[in-house]
Design a protein around this nucleic acid. Structure first.
Lengths: 168, 168
DNA sequence: TTGAAGTTTCAGTATTTTTCGAAAACAAGA
DNA sequence: TCTTGTTTTCGAAAAATACTGAAACTTCAA
């Protein structure tokens, strides 16, 4: 396998994975491209490399910046912006965890708590509903705390340390 | 908030969450419905409750069974099948983790390893590519091992125990 | 063996999501 | 202020995905 095949394969794989992760295909592909590039790339570069439109490129680059996965770099005497990805896997994982927590877990926890507090009555149905929601809520809380620790720890090698603890 | 409002809200929330989790909306809604039902429901019941077609119901119920989140129950002297969801949150989490690991993590790890082994050359580009893929691969391996432990532990209260370890 | 009750499949349709591309907005230098 | 290079926006088109409805199939009791 030569360089461009390998690169293409990586981009493509990362891209299709992204869609399972709340990140759309193009966004994940741009991310992959920046991850394997040695220097920052311009919008133009990205468009050509991935054969996607300018608009699409721009929107997704911005989204990546929003997620905290990519940053821009300005070059003296150049108007054009160059983008690069943070390459530390722990940082990447942390940013994704944080963003997803914000978008998914937090709203879920809110709704569950609301249902538990506000639902009226004590029919068997209501009881069952409360039981389920509070179980799910408890679980979400634990998960949430784990993520908090993870996110606050700055990624680090938290995960590998943890694994050691678990294994022994 | 009365019973049916609360129930609807739960189903709706779980449904929209599912889509971020590799589970489509209807599938997640059926799951939610079964979670809050005190007894097993038939295809007919589900169709009516969620106002979806028979075909859709059938396909998604099968998918839930595939994922190991739902099982069917046969009643003596009745032809109709009744479905119920496993209600233990730990079991649910385990099943989802397992299924997603299989569908997403395993293929990713395979591709990364392949790229690392098979890519030819030692240009700077290739080096960068190898660096990135092997970092990601290492990270995926750790994650994978965590999930293995989690899945094999049978869910249990692994997660809460873990949290205690982390916190102290 | 028949047919009633139920399940599964699948082609076509609808919906949702993603992408494009052209035009508007913007920034900086002349 | 005008020009030029660049970024951003946004409606329309395309692609992907999910859903329907009806027909085909299965099962079992009579």
């Amino acid at each position: 396998m030569n360089y461009s095949e390998a690169k293409a394969k990586f981009i493509q794989t990362w891209g299709s994975l992204g869609s399972h992760w709340g990140i759309n295909r193009t966004m994940a592909q741009i991310h992959a491209l920046l991850l394997v590039s040695r220097q920052a790339l311009s919008t133009e570069d990205i468009m050509h490399e991935l054969t996607i439109s300018r608009g699409n490129t721009n929107m997704n680059v911005r989204a990546l910046i929003d997620w905290g996965l990519v940053d821009k770099e300005l070059r003296a005497g150049e108007r054009r912006e160059y983008f690069y990805a943070f390459k530390d896997v722990n940082v990447i994982a942390r940013q994704i965890a944080q963003e997803r927590k914000k978008r998914e877990l937090d709203p879920l926890r809110k709704v569950l708590k609301q249902i538990n507090e506000e639902v009226q009555g004590d029919s068997p149905g209501v009881k069952e509903l409360k039981k389920v929601t509070s179980n799910v809520a408890d679980f979400s809380d634990v998960t949430n705390q784990m993520l908090e620790v993870f996110v606050k720890s700055g990624g680090g090698n938290w995960l590998s340390n943890l694994l050691l603890k678990i294994m022994k």
